[in-house]
Design a protein around this nucleic acid. Sequence first.
DNA 1: TATGAATGAGTATTCATTCAT
DNA 2: GATGAATGAATACTCATTCAT
Lengths: 190, 190, 190, 190
Amino acid sequence: MARAKSEEKRLSILSAATHVIAKQGTEAPTLLIARQAGIADGTLFTYFRSKDVLFNELYLHLKTELRDAMMPGYPLGASQRDRIFHTWHALVQWGIDNPEKRQAMHVLNLSERVSVTSKAAGADVFSFVMGLLKEIVESHQLLQVPVSFYAGLLGVMSESTMDYVCRGVDHPETAIAAGFNAFWRAIGGD
Amino acid sequence: MARAKSEEKRLSILSAATHVIAKQGTEAPTLLIARQAGIADGTLFTYFRSKDVLFNELYLHLKTELRDAMMPGYPLGASQRDRIFHTWHALVQWGIDNPEKRQAMHVLNLSERVSVTSKAAGADVFSFVMGLLKEIVESHQLLQVPVSFYAGLLGVMSESTMDYVCRGVDHPETAIAAGFNAFWRAIGGD
Amino acid sequence: MARAKSEEKRLSILSAATHVIAKQGTEAPTLLIARQAGIADGTLFTYFRSKDVLFNELYLHLKTELRDAMMPGYPLGASQRDRIFHTWHALVQWGIDNPEKRQAMHVLNLSERVSVTSKAAGADVFSFVMGLLKEIVESHQLLQVPVSFYAGLLGVMSESTMDYVCRGVDHPETAIAAGFNAFWRAIGGD
Amino acid sequence: MARAKSEEKRLSILSAATHVIAKQGTEAPTLLIARQAGIADGTLFTYFRSKDVLFNELYLHLKTELRDAMMPGYPLGASQRDRIFHTWHALVQWGIDNPEKRQAMHVLNLSERVSVTSKAAGADVFSFVMGLLKEIVESHQLLQVPVSFYAGLLGVMSESTMDYVCRGVDHPETAIAAGFNAFWRAIGGD
DNA sequence: TATGAATGAGTATTCATTCAT
DNA sequence: GATGAATGAATACTCATTCAT
C-alpha cells in the first residue's frame, strides 16, 4: 500500500507538525513531532518517507484547508468590492483563528525544504482570486505591472493585518476593515 | 606586536555570512562561512565569540548600512509625497542592488538567534520614517489603526516590490513607481 | 516491541569505560569507549545521557562490585585481628585481580566529573569497616587523631600493597601479609 | 641559546603552572598558565617547547625543591628514630606549607604526560631516605618485602597525614606526631 | 504495523602550537 | 624576544533514518 494504515494517525502527525513548526521552526527534531502526535519516533516514517516529504505534504495540506475556508458564502453576483472583501475577510479570519497554522505556513513558505513544485501548487490555491483581481485591476487601469504583483500585495497586506490583530487589539473587525480599505485603495478602488 | 586583528577580515566574515545566510539560512555551518571568507574554521571565533554573536552583529551591521543608504539626498523641505517617495525609492533601490543583504536581513529578522535587544536596536533605524508617516497618516485622517500599522505596510509593500523587481523586470523604475503609487494610495494619498 | 535496551550492552560499555579510563584517564574520547564496547558512537548516549553520567554510574558500579567482593566469608565472631585481616585480604585481592578496575576507580575518585554525591555514596561502602576500625583503635587507645585518619591509612596502605604486588612479585600472599602486618602495627596492634 | 632570556620569567611560568595545575589539573589550557604568569600565550613556548616539556620540567623542579626543604637541620649523628622523624617532619611540613605545590606534584605523578624517565629521576630525590630506611628495616628484620615497599609507605602515609592536617585541625604538631608514630610502628619501631 | 534501539554523519567550539609583526 | 592572530585537529552530543523485534 502506498499509504499506511490509519488516516487519523496521519492527520495527528500533520497537526503535531504544525504545532511544532510554529513553535520551533523547521529545524525542530522529528522526535518532537512524533511525541506530540503520540506515536513512536520511527512510526512517523511509515506515514511520511522523510522529514522533507512530511513538510511538503503539510504545506499543501494547510494551503488546501485555507482555500476551503475561503469558499463558503462567496457572494457570486455581488460587486467587485464585496467579492474581494469576502475573500479578504475569510483569509484574515482564518489566520486569526488559526495562528499556529498561519505561522507554520509562513515558515514553510520560506523553507528550502519545501520544493518549488509544492510552492507552485500552493499558489494555485489563489488562482480564483487572481481572476477576480484581474477584473478589478483592469477596470482600474493599473496595468503597468501584472496582476500577480497585486496578488502579492493581497498576501502581504493581509498578513500584516493578521499580525496586527494577533498582537492584541480591541476591535478586530475595525482592524480587518482598515486593512481592507488600505488594500482596496492600493488596487485603485474608490 | 603581533598581527593586529584586521578590520578587513572582520568585514569579509560579515560579507561571507551574508552570502551564506542568504543561500542556506541560519542553520548553515560556520565552516562554510569561514571558507567563504577565506579563513580557517577557528579564526572566525577570534572575531566573533560565537555563531550567535556573529549573527547579532551582522544584523545590526546590515541595518546600519541600510539606514546609511536611505539618508543621502533626502529632500527636507519637499512635499509629504516627495519625502516619502524618496524614502521608498532608497529602500527599494538598496534591496534591489543588494539582494543577498536583503535576504540575509530577512532571515535574521525571523531567527531566534537574533536577540530581542538587537531587533529593537534595528527597529530604531526606521524611527525617522515613523515620524514622517505619522504626519501623513494624521493629515489623511486614517487613525482607526495606529501609525505602526502603516509602517508595517511600508515594510511589506516595499519588500513585495523588491521581490517583483528581482524576479526580473524590464523597467525597474516603472515597477518601483507602481509599487509606490499603491502604497501612497494605501495610506490615503491621491 | 522494538529491541529492548540490552543489559549486556550496558555492562559492556561500563567494562569498556573501565578499560579506557584506566589506560587514558577521564579525558579519553567517548568514541574510544564506544569502539571498545563494540557499538556505534551515538549508541553510548542511549545508555548514558552524557559522559559525566557514564562516569558517575561507573564509579558506583565499581564501588558496589568491590563491596560485594569484600563480604563473602567475613568471620563474624572472630578476633579483631582476624576480622580486619579478612577485610584487608579481600580488598587487596580484588585490587590485584582487577587492576584496571582499581585504576579506573582511583582516577574517578580524583576526577571533578564524579559528583560529591556519588563520592559520598561510594564512601558508604566502607562504613562497615569504619565500625570495626573504631572498635580496634579505641581498644588500642590511639585517639589523638580520629578513626577516619586510620581509615585513610587502611586505604593508602592497601593501595601501596596492591601496587607492590602488581609490579610483579613471586609470593603475593607473603606481600599481602607483610602489608597487613605493617598496617596492623600502624594501628597499634601487637 | 638553548634557554630563553629571563630566568625570572621562567620561574613565574613554573609558579603559574603549579597554581593552575593544582586548581584545574593537567588539562587546563596553556592560555591560563600564560595569563597567570603575566605573559602572552605564545611566549610560554619560547621557554618550554611544549606543554609536556613544561610539565616534565615542573615535576622535577618541584621534586628538587622538596628535597632542598628536607635537608636543613638533618641530625647526622642522631638515633634512627630521630633521623627518620626529621625527614618525616620536614616532608609533612613542606606539604602543609605548600598545598598547591603538593597538589600539583600529586597530579603530575599520575599524569601520562610526565614520562617514566622523569618519574624515575624524581624518585632519586628520595634515594637518601632509602639508605636510612634500609638501615632501619634491616635492623628490625622486616625483609620479607624490599625496602622500596616501606619507602612507598613513607610516601603514602605522609600524604595521608598532610591531607588530614590540611582538612583543618587544631594542633598540627599532634597530628604530625600521630602520623609519624603510625609509620614508625609500621616499619617495626617501638 | 508499531516500536524504539542502533547507526554514524554532522557541527560549534576549544586549544596547542606556529609565525607574521 | 615578545606578542597574539591564525591554524586546523579534536570531541561531545544530536538527529534523520533504518531495522530487528
